[in-house]
């Protein structure tokens, strides 16, 4: 495969929240601690992690719509340049687009058509939307509906079409298929695959590893605010090809691999252990794991584990 251009390179990214404990003590809550993701043009990368691991915040951080009391750290490089808050504001909705989880993200009192056009009434916007709707087999009447009047099938296509109004080069899909039937999931995923095949980078944020393996090119495993492994989808064919104990545990938990689960739960941000966040649940944990663990290349992927070979 030819070398493709890197569209998004996130390095050592973190998001922390300032909080007041007991009203006096100011503490910083590092919801995302060390996150590294690289996306090339035409590539679909899935960030997989269980709920509460800070996945949605990643999307908001890239778009610059994080809550006002959040502090971002690390570096995001988009299209070769550092992605500053000003650049985020200029690019979001046009080059960098978000596809949300559900129609709850649409204004309940605004008709679909005007809402997708962001209230614009010019001919160019109208024609563009008409074209997108045609491509999705959505009838023109749908533009006159309110969000509550749409069927489940329409919802998905409408949400995806919001992303097409700009000229997306990076698509961020935040749990785009919660609670959907598998057929529907495949159809929605096909839209994202198509966008990637047309040259956009797609960042799929999900808790569903099985789904990610079906459509993505690479999978980034995210645990308690940290990316622990970055692996090609093919690596998930065999447990031995995976590098991090948590990825292996995820693999074993897949239905076809025996539904095995490990003890314990993902630690809450406030109770994170020193060093490797997975340490307390890991059989291979040693004293060395209590130190800061570097993200390093192993067998063509990346891993944050000192024992990986």
């Amino acid at each position: 495969m030819e070398e493709r251009k890197v569209i998004l390179d996130i390095h050592n990214f973190s998001i922390a929240f300032e909080q007041y404990e007991n009203g006096f003590k100011k503490t910083s809550l590092p919801t995302i601690r060390e996150l590294d993701v690289t996306i090339h043009e035409g590539e679909m990368v899935a960030v997989v992690g269980s709920s509460g691991s800070g996945k949605s915040l990643l999307a908001h951080g890239i778009l610059g719509i994080q809550p006002y009391n959040a502090t971002l750290g690390g570096e995001i490089i988009y299209d070769g340049e550092i992605l500053t808050e000003e650049r985020k504001a200029a690019l979001r909705g046009n080059e960098i687009v978000l596809v949300p989880q559900s129609v709850a993200f649409l204004d309940p009192l605004m008709k679909i058509g005007p809402q997708i056009r962001k209230g614009k009434k010019d001919k160019a916007s109208k024609e563009k939307l008409d074209g997108i709707f045609k491509g999705f087999h959505l009838k023109e009447e749908v533009q006159d509906l309110y969000p509550f009047e749409m069927s489940g099938g329409m919802n998905r296509r409408v949400l995806v079409s919001t992303a097409m109004m700009g000229n997306p080069r990076l698509v961020i899909a935040d749990e785009p298929t919660p609670g959907l039937h598998m057929d529907m999931v495949r159809r929605v995923m096909a839209h994202f695959r198509e966008m990637a095949d047309n040259g956009a980078g797609v960042l799929l944020i999900t808790h569903d590893l099985e789904q990610a393996l079906e459509v993505a090119d690479r999978v980034v495993v995210f645990y308690a605010g940290t990316t622990v492994e970055d692996a090609d989808v093919k690596d998930f064919e065999k447990e031995e090809n995976l590098r991090h104990p948590y990825s292996k545990a995820l693999w074993r938990a897949l239905p076809q691999n025996g539904f095995q689960f490990i003890d314990g739960t993902q630690p809450y941000v406030k109770d994170l252990p020193e060093g490797c966040p997975f340490g307390p649940r890991c059989k291979e944990c040693t004293a060395e794991c209590k130190k800061r663990i570097a993200y390093r290349e192993v067998r063509g992927g990346r891993v944050r584990c000192i024992h990986a070979v």
Binding site: I65, A89, R92, G93, L98, D107, L109, K118, T162
Partner: peptide, 24 residues
Amino acid sequence: DYVLFARARGESTWSIVKNHGLRN
């Protein structure tokens, strides 16, 4: 959530107030 999404779509504060704030 719908204002968050409107911001994600690049709508300015004024546009958000006009399109979503007043309406709701």
